[in-house]
Design a protein around this nucleic acid. Structure first.
Length: 209
DNA sequence: GCGACAG
DNA sequence: ATCTTGTCGC
């Protein structure tokens, strides 16, 4: 399925001046039988929350490296339908092009929604790289099979870098610039942090349905 | 065959 | 992802 959908990915450039950016994330209950997906739309400049959508559900697919999207996409698409604000960019918790078949979660969501997207991963899935300089904004190429599939970006000095890769209708420079704009204080983008908080809270505030 | 392996 | 334990720093 990934090989079939990959041709539908459209390359950059990404939006020149996106007004809103959305963070997407999914949290799982420790019993492994319940999950919550959240999407939080922020104003790109002020980081003010413009919209939030949270849905609960059950995992329908196991976690398998390389097939991660099939586990989280169902709930994320449901949450997307509940949004009243159409975000200009989707920022995913995971990779885009930096995937064995060049079709990670960010690419998959971008193709299904038609929206520009990119991924910001906390750990690598594929590729090799040299550590970027120890200062915010420093970056190095993430290379796999001889091609640059993403960037290793330092969002905070003296903190582990993040892995940025394009999804759909996006270019790496725009993705890295947006990531830096969204990390004024912490390692991860405010979008990701807001979505992580939202789905985690939803999972706890609703012990049973 | 062995090791790696987004969340 | 989630959990635990321990350390460092503001």
């Amino acid at each position: 399925m990934q090989d079939a959908l990959r041709p539908r990915v459209i390359g950059g450039p990404g939006p020149a001046d996106p007004t809103t950016v959305a963070g997407l994330d999914v949290a799982y209950h420790e019993d492994g039988d319940r999950l919550a997906a959240a999407i939080v739309v922020l104003d790109t400049r002020t980081h003010e929350v413009r919209d939030t959508a949270v849905v609960q559900g059950k995992p329908s697919f196991p976690y398998i490296p390389g097939l991660f999207a099939f586990r989280e996409i169902p709930a994320l698409l449901e949450a997307l339908e509940k949004l009243t604000v159409r975000p200009d960019v989707l920022i995913c918790d995971g990779h885009g092009l930096a995937h064995p078949r060049r079709f990670g979660l960010a690419c998959h969501l971008g193709v299904l929604t038609g929206l520009p997207s990119f991924g910001v991963g906390k750990t690598p899935l594929i590729g090799t790289w040299t550590p970027p300089a120890d200062r915010r904004g420093a970056r190095s190429d993430l290379v796999d099979a001889g091609e640059v599939v993403g960037a290793v970006l330092r969002t905070r000095q003296a903190v582990k870098p993040v892995f940025v890769s394009v999804g759909h209708r996006m270019d790496l420079d725009t993705a890295c610039a947006l990531t830096l704009t969204l990390t004024p204080r912490f390692r991860l983008p405010e979008t990701t942090r807001a979505a992580d908080r939202a789905c985690r809270d939803a999972l706890i505030s609703t012990p049973r349905t």
